[in-house]
Design a binder for these strands. Structure first.
Length: 482
RNA sequence: UCCCUGAUAGCUCAAUGGUAGAGCGACCGGCUGUUAACCGGUAGGUUCCAGGUUCGAGUCCUGGUCGGGGAGCCA
């Protein structure tokens, strides 16, 4: 008898002989017809469990079937029949218990609502619940859609390194990677001295890589090198930030997607970002309609309407300078903000939300920011772009209703002399960027890219409120239990 | 890191400084092609940790640990 996944058994013709395997959600008993039990079994292949109907004449009915509790592992064989209220169920000929749940009184997961905070402490078991099963499937579907989007467009997936020995990837505290004795590390000895004096600098030349090494905070600088040969490339991998951030939107370990396109300007970068987001939404809506219906009903009311709106609305291109003007106008009309609006300063999230949720009511791509609030590698615009009162760079942020910033990107500075001036202005050592600068010396072309935080995209698409609940085993300050 | 807030049964929560309780879940029984099932009963406690005040602390005080919300940083 064929073993079918639950999703297949649900669609099998009435009369088919099947075996299913999985974990029990709930069991209900009836004394009618000489005793029968309704056992709901799920195996992760779809949102709904399948109902197994076990009758009292099964040899192990009293001894085992009626003792089944939530999350026992079972194998059930029988015939597909029509449920009186619609849908397939299995009239069981045999129900085997493959794994009991010991001490069900103290089993943490019960057939009842649990708080996400509690389930985070049971990360090894929470994936057996409705919500986290749905999150896992959507996360997989989103990952596949990301690769498919780029693959269909001729992009090459580049595996940028996890360990980096350059300490110049930009802002953000990094995790150190070292094999040195942390308690008693080797220290630099002065010329001719036998012993290093107390408090001397640590001698990283003796470390594994011969220099200080860290976990990556971004693959962008590396991926730019492949962009300058393969034209269209992207990274999709883990990223690490040792910031002491305790919020519902930050992780110490998260996944990031960073496409990089050659022979392209900011306008093409923005178009790519819009096409990308719409592709992802469409893919998840069509491939995981069951899970998305659950998120819409139980996690965020109106989620599907919000996503469909993003799918249909064109993304509004808006120069930063124009955004400031709109915000100042709103203030003169009486709109109150906690933080002031001033050209040259970064927009607060309340400003971003006003623009995308109240003023335009559609996704907004903010472009051309003041150079002083952006990174060194962003391309310097011509003076007077958008009528700006100061220098701007070709940066863009994609803002969406309900979540705010979801993508940050830019056209990169391809002119060596301008890049060098920016490095000098920001006090960054040119020597450390020697290979990045080489790209501007040997066949430099205009290019652009952006970064999308994968878990933030998950929050945007599922409506889940805490980033710790859209990754299997979240790493945050003071927390790496699993 | 800062501000606010919390930690009591497997879970969600109550308990004026004076015998630690309920609902759900688990277990037992009743009823029922059940599906958030329903009805009755039973069991279940290091009140986060370490000190302190008090005749007496779940409750008050001090310190810590961890959780949640917000802010900053950002993706």
């Amino acid at each position: 008898m064929a073993w079918l996944r639950v999703v297949e058994a649900m669609k099998a013709p009435v009369g088919t002989d099947v075996t299913i395997r999985g974990w029990v959600r709930t069991r209900r008993d009836s004394k009618a017809e000489g005793g029968l039990s309704f056992v709901h079994v799920h195996d992760g292949s779809c949102f709904d469990p399948i109902q197994v109907v076990a009758k009292g004449d099964l040899p192990n009915y009293a001894s085992e079937v009626t003792r089944i509790t939530t999350h026992c592992a079972v194998e059930a064989s029988g015939t597909i029949v029509q449920n009186p209220k619609g849908g397939n169920e299995i009239a069981a000929r045999e129900v085997k218990v493959l794994g009991w749940v010991e001490d069900p009184d103290h089993y943490p997961i019960q057939p009842k609502p649990h708080s996400f905070e509690f389930l985070r402490e049971q990360a090894h078991l929470r994936v057996r619940t409705n919500t986290f099963g749905a999150v896992a499937r959507v996360r997989h579907t989103l990952s596949m859609a990301i690769h498919r989007f780029f693959h269909e467009r001729g992009f090459v997936w580049v595996h940028t390194p996890i360990v980096t020995a350059s300490d110049c990837e930009g802002a953000g505290q990094m995790f150190r990677v070292s094999t040195l004795d942390a308690v008693n590390p080797p220290r630099v000895k002065p010329e001719g001295a036998k012993e290093a004096p107390a408090g001397a600098p640590i001698d990283f030349s003796q470390d594994f890589f011969g220099k200080e090494a860290h976990l990556t905070v971004s693959g962008q600088l590396n991926v730019e090198t492949y962009c300058a040969a393969l034209t269209n490339v992207y990274t999709f991998g883990p990223t690490f930030r040792a910031e002491n951030s305790n919020t519902s939107r930050h992780l110490a370990e998260f996944w990031m997607i960073e496409p990089e396109i050659a022979f392209a300007t900011l306008a093409e970068d923005a178009q790519l970002a819009e096409d990308f987001i719409k592709y992802l939404i469409a893919a998840v809506l069509s491939e995981r309609a069951d899970d998305m219906k659950f998120f819409d009903e139980r996690i965020e009311k109106g989620l599907l309407a919000r996503l469909k709106h993003v799918l249909e609305a064109p993304f509004r291109r808006l120069p930063y300078t124009e955004a400031i003007r709109i915000l100042e106008e709103a203030i003169t009309k009486g709109r109150k903000f906690e933080y002031p609006v001033k050209w040259g300063t970064d927009l607060q999230s309340e400003h971003e939300r006003y623009l995308t949720e109240e003023h335009f009511k559609q996704p907004v791509i903010l472009m051309n920011y003041p150079k002083q609030i952006k990174a060194f590698y962003m391309r310097l615009n011509d003076p007077g772009t958008d009528g700006a009162p100061g220098d701007t760079v070709a940066a863009m942020d994609v803002l969406v209703p309900g979540v705010g910033e979801i993508i940050g990107g830019s056209q990169r500075e391809e002119r060596l002399e301008v890049l060098d001036r920016r490095l000098d202005e920001m006090g960054l050592p040119k020597k450390e960027y020697w290979w990045y600068r080489d790209l501007r010396r040997f066949g430099s072309v205009p290019h652009a890219g952006f970064g999308l935080g994968f878990e933030r995209a998950m929050m945007f698409i599922t409506g889940m409120q805490n980033v710790r609940d859209v990754i299997p085993f979240p790493r945050t300050p003071k927390s790496a239990e699993f």
